[in-house]
């Protein structure tokens, strides 16, 4: 008899409906205007995404205070890279004792963002920046070199101008 009544009166369904109804009411009331939000949506791209400090984005070459490239072509990153996306060509430059990278090519389409290169670098000359919008219209634009039409090893891609907050563009 008890089980018959339990089947007849859907209390179990009522519990679920109450929960979903509660959230519906909350979100309906607070959608977009309350400071404490029930909904979990991040309205990208109008609102920039909040990234953690250790976020692994695109590979970037760093320059020191004098505007000199820090890389000294030890090829450690080229060797450790699991997908072999880095190609460095060693060269000499006037007034610089250490070797200077004439070419530093980075095939972004194959990069898996593991940060092994940054880890292997003994001179802190490369870093993964906070850029995650890596789309481009041409395949060639994924081959990033020291100077590039679309993006290069030093600057963010134009696509990233919205989402990466100013202070995170390290």
């Amino acid at each position: 008899m008890a089980s018959f009544l339990r089947t007849l009166i859907p209390l179990d369904i009522y519990g679920g409906m109450k929960l979903t109804g509660k959230y519906f009411g909350k979100v309906l009331r607070e959608a977009n205007r309350a400071r404490i939000r029930t909904h979990v949506v991040c309205e990208y791209p109008e609102v920039p995404v909040k990234l953690q400090p250790r976020f692994r984005g695109r590979l970037t070459l760093l320059k020191d205070e004098q505007g000199e490239i820090k890389c000294i072509c030890c090829l450690a990153c080229e060797k450790i890279c699991p997908t072999q996306v880095i190609t460095i060509e060693k060269g000499k430059k006037e007034g610089r004792k250490l070797p200077y990278p004439v070419r530093y090519d980075f095939e972004m389409e194959r990069c898996i963002f593991c940060e092994f290169c940054v880890e292997s670098c003994g001179f802190d000359s490369i870093i993964l920046n906070h850029q995650f919008e890596l789309a481009a219209y041409n395949r060639e634009d994924f081959s990033i070199g020291m100077e590039g039409r679309f993006q290069n090893m030093f600057e963010l891609s134009p696509v990233a101008r919205y989402s990466v907050a100013e202070e995170a563009q390290r």
Partner: peptide, 12 residues
């Protein structure tokens, strides 16, 4: 995960 190692899914 992102805070710990920088990636969300392919963590390494």
């Amino acid at each position: 995960f992102e805070a710990f190692c920088g990636a969300r899914l392919t963590t390494t």
